[in-house]
Write a protein that binds this DNA or RNA. Structure first.
Length: 466
RNA sequence: GGCGCGGUAGCCAAGUGGUAAGGCCAAGGUCUGCAAAACCUUUAUUCGUCGGUUCAAUUCCGACCCGCGCCUCCA
């Protein structure tokens, strides 16, 4: 079965085929750097990461652009309040964001692009839209006139035919002719930063940046455009209106949206006290891999209810995976190749791949991995697991980890060197041999205090860092 | 009200027109000097409710109930 994705545009699962050979041109909506990103944001960004990794695993070459919105109302408000320049203000949060991405092992896209570095291009695009008659100005600001774009609503499946132009719905501080119209260019207000451009002084509206930067780097028609479901309307709808008006071409072929993360069944909000940044969660002692696993383990089209209980569960699941990896690496297997197991591994890998091909069904893919691990453990216990099975198993596990990337621990507290640990283990072995279990247990506890866990096996002692 | 997503065991969650994957937790057990790890057993006669289609529905159709999101900024 080919790779396929649910496309918001068609509301169907479709086979994925990029326009050109094996290159995937993908644009994903990145963060607005006005504050620390929260775990809801990272749910979406983790999904982008899985998408990237699976596309590449499937042989595609990626050209992925992600924007950083560094000019926007909240940023301006906060920067003014702190008497900082826009750049000084956003630099802090951009840096924090990139650190968080790294902690979560999110691969960087091929290009990060900042809104403020494309102001002139945005102005030029707006100019062109104006020449084409898609805009009007009001009090120094320029608006996109939705009435000039008949396909408006196709992505969000909204029917606007019943809405009258000019039927004023309460609109913020700007004057719009139609509630659906949106600002392309905002006139400067007192004390606010602005840019001098051929279309006048001001700053870009939010939507135009994505259209302009996507087209600039990826061409007029993207293969994939992804974002959170909350962006479907109006953001992505507006992007389509602008882009298609500008180019006359479809803007993106596959629109992929990830569902919301909820906390305790509700939307995160500061007033409810259920608003968590990644930093908040890590400060509670959870490893970034546990967070990554949790965010990655629920299919993107399903709302993910974040709880600390769930995070704990994710942590234990990661431990199970790591234990298996450790066993695979340390245990001595008899020579040979158990054909039954070889087949079993191939089956598991096939199920893993087919599941991810199916609109990135991570739940099913993980099931394939865990089922395999159980069978392999059983075989190991029975002595049926042989050397050559090990190589294949390691390859499968590596493949799993190229996508999920949770096996490597990120907190490496090297309080004891490997040699120190081995020495302690040797001392404990002596004590055990003398049946001095009190001393043996003392050593084991001592090591445990330092984050070293011992496991006695028939092949000797196996140890790992917590 | 419109648009969209979802309601499957204590929690998370997959899935199919033919009788319920997987993970976590819990209980008991095997192994172990004791642990750890691993394994085994138990845990949904049942998949929001009510109808319908069918030999057969959790899976299709209809209605209804509930949760969440979007409809002004938002991953």
């Amino acid at each position: 079965m080919p790779l396929r994705f649910y496309n918001t545009l068609s509301q169907q699962v479709e086979e994925f085929r990029p326009q050109e050979d094996n290159i995937v041109r993908m644009y994903t909506c990145g963060p607005t750097v006005y504050d620390y990103a929260h775990i809801g944001n990272f749910r979406t960004f983790t999904f982008f990461d899985l998408l990237r990794r699976w596309l590449r695993e499937r042989g595609y070459r990626l050209d992925h652009v992600m924007n950083i919105t560094d000019v926007e109302d909240k940023i301006i408000r906060n920067a003014l309040a702190q008497h900082k320049s826009l750049t000084d203000y956003t630099a802090t949060f951009e840096k924090a964001f990139l650190e968080d991405c790294k902690a979560l092992r999110l691969e960087p896209p091929e290009r990060w692009v900042r809104a403020t570095e494309h102001i002139n291009e945005m102005a030029a695009a707006i100019q062109k839209l104006s020449e084409q008659g898609h805009t009007y100005s009001s009090e120094g600001s320029l608006y996109f006139r939705i009435a000039t774009f008949p396909d408006y609503g196709k992505l969000s499946h909204n029917d606007f035919s019943g809405i009258r132009a000019g039927a004023r719905v309460d609109v913020d501080t700007y004057d719009k002719a139609d509630a659906r119209d949106f600002a392309l260019w905002k006139a400067p207000k007192d004390g606010e930063p602005f840019w001098d451009t051929p279309i006048g002084p001001g700053r870009p509206g939010w939507h135009i940046e994505c259209s302009v930067m996507a087209i600039r780097y990826l061409g007029e028609t993207l293969d994939i455009h992804a974002g959170g479901v909350d962006l479907i309307f109006p953001h992505h709808e507006n992007e389509i209106a602008q882009s298609v008006s500008l180019t006359g071409k479809p803007f993106a072929r596959y629109w992929i949206h990830s569902e919301f993360l909820l906390v305790d069944g509700q939307k995160m909000s500061k007033s409810l006290g259920n608003y968590y940044t990644l930093r908040d969660v890590l400060a509670r002692g959870f490893a970034p891999e546990a967070v990554r696993y949790l965010l990655a383990s629920v299919p993107h089209r399903k709302q993910l209810n974040f709880t600390f209980e769930g995070l704990k569960s994710a942590e234990t699941s990661v431990d199970r995976l790591r234990n298996f990896k450790l066993r695979l690496e340390k245990e001595k297997f008899p020579p040979g190749n158990n054909p039954k197991l070889a087949i079993r591994t191939a089956e598991a890998e096939t199920k893993f791949s087919e599941s991810l091909d199916d609109d990135l069904n991570v739940a099913e893919a993980l099931a394939a991995v865990f089922e395999y691990i159980r069978d392999a453990n059983v075989a190991m216990d029975a002595g049926d697991f042989q050397e050559e099975n090990g190589a294949v198993a390691r390859a499968f596990l590596n493949r799993f980890d190229r996508i999920f990337d949770v096996l490597r621990p990120s907190t490496q507290r090297e309080s004891l060197s490997d040699a120190d640990v081995e020495a302690k283990i040797a001392a404990r072995a002596q004590a055990k041999k003398a049946r001095n279990f009190a001393e043996a247990d003392r050593v084991r506890d001592e090591l445990l205090q330092q984050g070293i866990i011992l496991e006695d096996t028939k092949d000797g002692v196996r140890w790992k860092r917590k």
